[in-house]
Design a protein around this nucleic acid. Structure first.
Length: 293
DNA sequence: CTTGAGCGG
């Protein structure tokens, strides 16, 4: 065992390595002086002093901020020089935190780009181009959607555009399914002639539910209030209260959808003209929202 | 006075 221990005690060594804390201050002229202590190659302590004139600051710092730096300090810092003391204060840049799903980091670097994209989108407000006919509507709303049989048959290469070249490998996995999920009941006439809608109630589309427009409701009427009010006439499928997007305050109208049209009609008959919260309700059939065609 | 919001960039 090599028991030869250096003569200098361990404690001395540490004491030798102990360095004064770094210092930093800014004088009235805006010159920041930083003092660091370090060891050079010979193991000697050296003092490094840097004086940095903050030329940039004059142009960058907001006037109000510069003014604020002159304020007298209070509390524990009372009597200290104005301006941030970098020994106790961290002067930071803006830090933005981004929450990502699945612990993925790769998106982080692309974030600025993403922001740019959304800005561009905001600038060119509502510019859409149909992938089928290049119209200014969504593909799903394309008038020719039915005529063209949708995207599922068109394949990648058959698209109306010149995005050729890589068609092979992108379309490969999509060849059989078209790349989109199709519920079993909607799938082509393979072998199962199972009745359409065996598991689905009616058309299953919520758009064709019998819907009432209820107006003249008080602005604090909630969905639950309306469910309560209309629930007695039959099953209420959906209730929507028109609200201000920002404040959440009611706008005085609502939609109530029933499962059965007959029940909706009963509700009209019974509730229309009826008092509710010091107001007289108005209930009538709702017009389907204007479809962009 | 009073008819919704989202879906794709």
């Amino acid at each position: 065992m090599a028991s030869s221990v250096p003569k200098t005690s361990w404690a001395d060594d540490v004491d030798d390595l102990e360095l004064p804390k770094n210092e930093e201050f800014v004088d009235e002229n805006g010159i920041r002086t930083t003092i660091e202590y370090a060891l050079n190659e010979d193991g000697k302590k050296v003092k490094i002093t840097r004086r940095i004139k903050r030329t940039l600051q004059k142009s960058v710092v907001d006037h109000a901020v510069a003014e604020r730096q002159k304020w007298a300090k209070f509390g524990q810092e009372k009597g200290s020089k104005p301006g941030p003391d970098r020994a106790t204060t961290t002067v930071g840049e803006n830090v933005s935190l981004k929450l990502t799903a699945g612990n993925k980091q790769s998106e982080a670097e692309q974030a600025p780009e993403e922001t740019m994209k959304s800005r561009v989108k905001a600038a060119g407000a509502g510019k859409v181009a149909c992938r089928l006919c290049k119209g200014d509507h969504f593909t799903a709303k394309c008038p020719y959607k039915d005529t063209l049989g949708g995207l599922e048959n068109t394949d990648t290469g058959a698209g109306p555009d010149d995005d050729v070249g890589v068609g092979a490998d992108t379309s490969a996995p999509a060849a059989t399914s078209g790349g989109k999920y199709v519920p079993p009941s909607m799938r082509g006439a393979g072998g199962g002639t199972r009745g359409a809608g065996e598991s689905m109630r009616g058309a299953g589309n919520r758009d064709d539910l019998p819907t009432l427009r209820v107006t003249n409701i008080s602005e604090d009427t909630q969905e639950n209030d309306l469910r309560e009010l209309f629930g007695g006439f039959g099953r209420v499928a959906r209730v929507y209260v028109g609200r201000d997007r920002e404040t959440g305050a009611g706008k005085g109208f609502a939609f109530v959808s029933f499962e059965e049209k007959a029940n909706a009609q009963k509700a009209i008959d019974k509730v229309h003209g009826r008092g509710y919260d010091n107001l007289i309700l108005s209930v009538q059939w709702s017009q389907p929202r204007p479809d962009g065609k």
